[in-house]
Each structure stands twice: as structure tokens, then as C-alpha cells.
Design a protein around this nucleic acid. Structure first.
Lengths: 189, 189
DNA sequence: TAAGGTGAACTGTACGTTCAGTTCACTTGA
DNA sequence: TCAAGTGAACTGAACGTACAGTTCACCTTA
């Protein structure tokens, strides 16, 4: 690979920084490539040497921001750990970041070229976190061993994301708790 | 409201029909307003007299198609009924229609003007269906009365949608069964 | 004859591309 | 040690394209 000349690093950094700002200020619609170029003072030509498409830039910028905001909990109890992870994600999502997350996920569906970036910078990290928590929980015999970590991830986060995207109801902390509780314990009486 | 002159009805119908075809053939990206206009032989000017934006057209066309494809089951048992409903939706989603569904949901996030249509023509119908099944299940005491029908809907369909949108794993019938089973019974051992 | 529809041209926005020219970190050689 | 040279990386500005949505003069039919 390229030995990453200092100029490249600086340009990449400027772009990601400007993108994060724009995303915070006005969501994905505000993070136009022209706007990013203007604010970062990096030319579009250079930007497109580093990323294949607009979505990729936003995914990288946002993914790094989110990763920094959500640590991996360890309370010594599987249910609490998983619940805490969902709580962290939902607290993050309930704020203005949630909108950006939804927009980004949506953009990756509309523009498949960006989805590898989204997967790399966001999904894989979340999935790995849950996989670790799930393994701990399995070791402690606290969860159903028939269920894979992937299925658990989808069951835990899916409802959150679904509500976020359809926007039919506000995503408060109480709502998030109800969702994760129902997912953990099941719907049956 | 307009008394819906026969010409209006015909135009609307042509548009919805053409849109359904285009969605089937090439997904949402193929259902350009120009393409819809060309195929339906209804002018763009007329189209924009009936719908506020592109997403609205697609949502209406697709919603009607989906509603027709997914009946409300009644097997005399809540668990089976809910599972069956999720199965129907997932079978529908696992095929080429699933992609369109994801694209449409994505489009409504990117373009909020379309989301009322999406809600009206798709989400509300699904939500109403589950609400009815949920009430039946409550009457029979088969599900947790602490959980609302809305929460149940999100827990049942969220994982499916999440997987569909991120596309990290194929959505086979087995996968869908695993998801709905985990959602119904919970993750705990 | 008037409500509804047509068609074609037009505007605006934003993605992604291209290219001639510039900058800067580095070798090279005296 | 320092001027000259080299090439990779960046700039700026223009351009092509695609598509959403609008407008308007004209036609058609109940």
C-alpha cells in the first residue's frame, strides 16, 4: 500500500473533520461533497482519490465518531451487559445522531457502493461488540445456546433501527428499554 | 375532494400499474418519474397533480401490491398466527420485493415528504394487522400483557428489516424463522 | 366549453470527472 | 551544505450527466 505521505494524512483528516461538523449541523443532506470540499479546503478531485463516493466519506466520519462514543460494557452479568449496550446505542440514537444514523443507513441502501464502508466503520464494530458479550453470556449459561450472536444482534438492534427509520414514534429511553426488554425476554407470557 | 372524474381514475391507475412494473423490473432506481410517465403514457404534469413526489407514487404502488400479497392469518393460536405473519412478510421480503421494500424505506428517510405515504400505504396496514393478532393473543392469554402491540410489531419485524437493509447476510426462510423464533421466545436461556 | 390531460422545454441541484497548473517533501550532485 | 530537480499529491474551475419537479401553450372529451 501507499506509505501515506503526510499530505495525504492531513487532507484525509481535514475532510473527515469537516464532514463530522457538517453532519452534526445539518445531517447527511448538508454534507454535500461541494460543502465538504469548501469547508475542509480540500479539492473534490483529491477527495475522490481517497473515497469512492460521498456515502463512504460520511460513513467513515460518522463511524469513528460513534465508535468513540460507545464503549464495551462489562458488569459481570450477561443480561445487564447486553441491555447496557442497547441502552448506549439507543441513547446515542435518540439524540440528533440518530437521524444521521438513519440517513446513512438509508444512503447505503440507495447507493450500494457506500455500504462496504458503512459495514466496515459501523456495523462490524457493533457486531463484534455483541459477539463478545454474547460469548461471555454463553459461558455463564445465561442465554439460549441455540441462538447465534448474529441473530441476537439483529433481534436486539433491529427494533431500535426500525423505529428510528420509520419514525412513527419518538425513540425515548423508556421506549428503548421496552424494546430491549421485550427482545431479551420474548413476547410470550 | 374531487369527485374523481373517470379520466383521473384511469390516469392514476395507469401510473400505479406502470410503477409496479418498473419496480419489479429494476427496483426503485428504475422507477424514474420520466420512466413512469413514458410507460404509463401519463404526462409528468398530470402525475404531479396526483402525487406530491416520486416516493409517494412508489409507496402507493408497492404498498397495494404488498397488501394484496399478505393476508391476515387465523390459525386459532396466537403464536402460530404471529409467526405466520412474520413468515409471510419475510417470504415476501426474501424475494426481489425485499430489495424494493428496503429501497423504499430508505427513500422515505432521505425524503421525508414521501414518508406519510409510506406510512399510510404500508406501515399502517402491517401495524393494524399485528394489532389485531396481538389483541386475539391477549384475549387468549398467550402473550405478555405488559407489552404493547406497537412494541411487539417492532420486535417482530425490526430484525427482519434490519437484516434486509444492512444486507450483511442473506435473508433465507430459515434465517427469518430463527429471527422470529428468537423474538417470540426471547434470548435468555 | 371547461375540466382534465398532453408534451416539451426549462430550472435547479448535486454527483462524479477531467485537466492544466501548483505545491511540497524528498533526493541528487557539486 | 545547499541549489536544482523529481514526482506524488493537491488545487480550482469547468464540464457532463441524471433526475426531481415546474411551467405553459395547446389539445380532447364529456
Amino acid at each position: 500500500m501507499t506509505p501515506e505521505h503526510p499530505r495525504s494524512l492531513k487532507a484525509k483528516d481535514s475532510v473527515l473533520c469537516a464532514t463530522t461538523e457538517l453532519l452534526t449541523e445539518g445531517g447527511l443532506p448538508a454534507a454535500t461533497v461541494d460543502a465538504i470540499s469548501a469547508r475542509s479546503r480540500v479539492s473534490k478531485a483529491t477527495i475522490y482519490k481517497h473515497w469512492p463516493c460521498r456515502t463512504a466519506i460520511a460513513a467513515e466520519a460518522f463511524g469513528k465518531q460513534m465508535a468513540a462514543a460507545i464503549p464495551l460494557p462489562d458488569r459481570g452479568n450477561a443480561v445487564d451487559d447486553l441491555t447496557e449496550q442497547v441502552r448506549l446505542v439507543s441513547a446515542f440514537s435518540a439524540g440528533p445522531h440518530g437521524t444521521v444514523f438513519a440517513q446513512l443507513l438509508a444512503a447505503c441502501v440507495a447507493d450500494p457502493a457506500g455500504s462496504p464502508y458503512f459495514r466496515e466503520y459501523f456495523l462490524d464494530a457493533r457486531r463484534a461488540a455483541v459477539a463478545e458479550l454474547w460469548q461471555r453470556a454463553l459461558d455463564r449459561g445465561e442465554v439460549d445456546p441455540e441462538i447465534t450472536a448474529d441473530t441476537a444482534t439483529d433481534v436486539l438492534f433491529g427494533p431500535l433501527i426500525f423505529r428510528l427509520m420509520t419514525g412513527h414514534q419518538a425513540l425515548t429511553q423508556e421506549q428503548a428499554d421496552a424494546l430491549s426488554s421485550a427482545a431479551l425476554r420474548g413476547l410470550l407470557s
